[in-house]
Design a protein around this nucleic acid. Structure first.
Lengths: 294, 294
DNA sequence: ATTTCAACATAAGCATAGCTTATCAAAACT
DNA sequence: AGTTTTGATAAGCTATGCTTATGTTGAAAT
């Protein structure tokens, strides 16, 4: 019952008015002249009033004059929408939100994001850094599109795409007797003062668990932790990525027994697909990471 | 190249979201379920992104969430426009402008307009009264949609639809010796003081022309003219319709020799069709006038 | 006047868009 | 496990929207 207008015949009308004739309009639109005649006649019948004068060819009726700017308006709105949706679909426009653990945020994201904004300059980016647990929670709650983190716990709602492994090692002062070793076993650390940190959870339920368990020192703040270690007041374990690259006073020695790694990967909602912008970012990250490997 | 959206598939998407399933939406839209599946798949392909999650049935993707309110907006605009155009086309909305000679404006239009606004309460009306020459000019200039007047001059651009004839008669004081006659010949008026008025042009080039030609009195204002005649200061001629109906002091006696009439009709632009509102008004006038006749 | 031309309308035919019914496959209830 | 409910797929029909070819008409040219 409610009249349904198609966009295309409206364009035909505009073209005819613009060109002043059906012939010219047909040429402009790469259509045959009868195609326009028929489409416009159909439109006129739907509306219940002629748009063009039957006698004076190519001339609008008063009703046509009334319709014309309104047709223009609808077409304009249609085209704006179509362009916008297409942009967003292609990931050329939009917003991505992601959360990563601090080490990834500071060591990897700068490069990833630089590559990303080079390719998709009109996408807004929103980066949070939080610990692994919070990253997962933010993804699960839909607060961010993506997370990059180690898996905190099995969660039905989340999907995990592996990116790389990050070796866990001992961080100690460069003057420490064990500082020049190629690798260390946990037993060698039993007598050291162990300072736990946010990443120490990774030792839980491993052979090295007792390092953390029987321990009273815990410093969550990375700056404080580093300062403590630089002062030679103890040792800790960190994933390699979390170890500050150009630190002159500290050494990173991988643990060989047990060999520990944290799995870093992309966390997404399992039952939800990504927004086009988020897809674009994920793609860039994956491409970038495999490029570095090879 | 520029993506062309059709309105209907967008409605399908809205319905699926609203109903929460393709089946429910299909029922609501009186379509089969595959019709929706296919239409929406096609739309997704055009956009380049899925709108619904493939796993979780009837659930929007983030891209779908982005699109949904925009689809709603376009559909709303489409529907508003369609309804508006249809209203205007049916003459249920709009504006008519018309110009008539004063006698028609005061004696006939009140009834016509009452009938018109009863049938089309939402159309705006704009009524000018002007002399016949001006009425024609206003129509010719497109200042009004319609005119009701006697034809002023042959004009290529104007079309004339005859409505009725208006007899011309002599207007004189009720106490005048000729006042009780059934009709008069112009020769009987030769000795009278003739006061010309705006309608005296109608005598030009008729047998009675000399009444006007050899005459120094001319009063264009109807009120003044009537007052002059009521004072017994002369006589004039008027079309019957221009003679004030319930005047107690004056008489109207038709001219029989020559028998003179003015032709009253509808004046339109010849090469332009009427707006739907104007069509509606013309129709009401014609119907009303033939109804009165029969 | 007659011809000619340029415009739109009409007709016939074809490809495809958009629908239907029937059937399948997978997920969600019972 | 069996049943129901969901969306996807297939085959087939019809209407839409286009094409080319041919009328028709009114205005300009001869």
């Amino acid at each position: 019952m409610t009249l349904e207008l198609k966009i295309q015949p409206l364009r035909y009308v505009l073209a005819v008015v613009e060109e002043g004739s059906f012939h010219g309009a047909a040429k402009q639109l790469h259509r045959s002249q009868p195609a326009l005649s028929m489409a416009i006649r159909d439109l006129e019948e739907r509306l219940g009033q002629p748009l063009f004068e039957k006698s004076q060819k190519g001339q609008l009726t008063p009703y046509g004059e009334y319709c014309l700017p309104r047709f223009r308006e609808l077409i304009k709105q249609h085209d704006r929408l179509a362009a916008d949706l297409q942009h967003v679909a292609l990931g050329q426009q939009g917003r991505v939100t992601l959360a990563t653990v601090p080490s990834v945020a500071s060591r990897l994201m700068p490069e990833f994001l630089a590559a990303f904004i080079a390719e998709y300059p009109h996408i807004n980016i929103n980066l949070h850094d939080e610990n692994a647990k919070f990253v997962c929670r933010m993804v699960a709650n839909g607060e961010v599109d993506l997370g990059i983190s180690s898996v905190w716990a099995q969660d039905e709602r989340l999907s995990y795409t592996h990116l790389f492994e990050d070796n866990i090692g001992v961080v100690l002062h460069r003057d420490h007797p064990l500082a020049n070793r190629k690798s260390l076993q946990w037993q060698e650390l039993k007598e050291e003062r162990f300072i736990a940190n946010g990443t120490s959870r990774l030792l839980e339920k491993t052979a090295a668990a007792s390092l953390v368990d029987n321990n009273d020192f815990y410093i969550s703040n990375m700056i404080s932790l580093i300062a403590m270690l630089e002062a030679g007041s103890g040792i800790t374990t960190l994933p390699r990525l979390a170890f500050p690259v150009d630190n002159r006073k500290l050494c990173f020695v991988p643990l060989s027994e047990p060999k520990l790694v944290r799995q870093i990967g992309i966390i997404k909602l399992a039952n939800r697909s990504l927004s086009p912008s988020a897809q674009a970012l994920e793609e860039v990250i994956l491409k970038r990471l495999t490029a570095v490997r090879s």
